[in-house]
Write a protein that binds this DNA or RNA. Sequence first.
DNA 1: AGTATTGAAATTGTCGACAATCCTCAGTAC
DNA 2: GTACTGAGGATTGTCGACAATTTCAATACT
Lengths: 262, 262
Amino acid sequence: MRGPSPHRGVRWIERTGVKERREHANRPTGDPGTPDDGIYRDLYAAIIGQRLPPGTKLKEESLGDIYRVSRARVRKVLARLSHERVVTHVPNKGAFVAEPSVEEAREVFAARRVIEGYLVRLLAERHDPATARVLRAHLRVERRARRTKRFEEVVRSGGDFHLVLAHAAGRPIIGNFVRELVARSALISAAYEVGVPSSCEHDEHRELAECIERGEVDRANALMDAHLSGIETRLDLTPPRNAELDLRDVLAGSAYAQTVYD
Amino acid sequence: MRGPSPHRGVRWIERTGVKERREHANRPTGDPGTPDDGIYRDLYAAIIGQRLPPGTKLKEESLGDIYRVSRARVRKVLARLSHERVVTHVPNKGAFVAEPSVEEAREVFAARRVIEGYLVRLLAERHDPATARVLRAHLRVERRARRTKRFEEVVRSGGDFHLVLAHAAGRPIIGNFVRELVARSALISAAYEVGVPSSCEHDEHRELAECIERGEVDRANALMDAHLSGIETRLDLTPPRNAELDLRDVLAGSAYAQTVYD
DNA sequence: AGTATTGAAATTGTCGACAATCCTCAGTAC
DNA sequence: GTACTGAGGATTGTCGACAATTTCAATACT
């Protein structure tokens, strides 16, 4: 009853390799031939780049019109984004750009301190010259993005730094977790950041990279901790931040307010 | 003096509450009623419980026949399982129960040591009597499952211990990561475990819980480390485990082997 | 005035049918 | 006997149409 055993290795090649590489060539608008992966990237970039703020409704038909693609395809992409917690799917109501709660925000940064702290410790212990090269190369990418002054580029490359750490450490599974956490961090910034959006400070990344390069394990860990905590403290996580609920609290004390509502 | 309790999250109620609650309520004779969530749970349990070994093809139509449900629904469930890395989706070929590679296996346990180490440190620092209660309650569940001698129950409750830790620590996001890692661990056991499937030793869980209860932070961390490393070393992760490639290596040295193959 | 109701428009959910792709296995040639 | 080839069947991928649900505005009622 066993049947011919499915050969083992084919899986990986098809899952991560071929498809992705082909996408990079063509642009999202009006390019036929590209399957649904392009629209995924585009939507993802738009959300992370804060062009689509948290809470935005993502109407299936509208997206289908925009990308000249069937609704079923949009649906699939939205499902994927929903699994990655970048959009929230409400049954019979649709998909919305996720709105992280204050508790979620706090936990995201706590998780990042744990996971990315591990990554930098690992990298600093290794002391690998190849890693140093990769990190420096990425720092150049960040600097270039920063020079263009295009907000979205800056945010994206800044977030990618953390993914590069996971990649350099040879930890793809953890890298996926980091990817999700970085994405959620971007949403958190969009929802709670006050003043100018600073995102990841480039200098801190540089310092971190140098620290790893020099093999200073504990200091690298401390720097990452400070880096992430710095981002977190730059947020305004104190108020409930929910307009419709505030309404009720405010009105509850007024003269005409009823004690029992229903 | 103030109004009624301001229910905080309208959003949350709609997102997670209503639908599910309705499902739970109407279960007349236990078959149709519940939509695609039941078949998800069933498949998940079957895979984690090792009734569906790694590599098994999950044919859409067959599953549709089994569950008396349309192929589209099966497809959706498979997509979800695929996002959770429990099944592997190969384009134009179908869905298969995931076959973790040796590298993946190693990384899963490395990640678990980091993440779950954090969880037990957190819990031990807290010293919370409520946590102690929850853990003890779960240990009872494990013991009961173990008494039934039903393999699937034992595995599931053993894995749930780690989820309970995340829940007790109040870390749902990390809990999701742990869930994925535990699921993958089950697949890894199915693929690489030698001898009898021991899964998580109950005694180690008990010891861990007591340690947390007593607030011994470092020892709890060390115990979790040992627990996870113990599982890992009980695996046979040395051989390449790749049938078709071994074939080539073996034959390369034989008398009739050609130097160039194509 | 404010609230409940009802109907229609808009939106999401589901399904069956068709298209594209892959696999099997004869059949044939060398 | 082995390797190629090309139907034929089996399986996955995609789409459009229909059903179910929500939303919103207009109306009716207290």
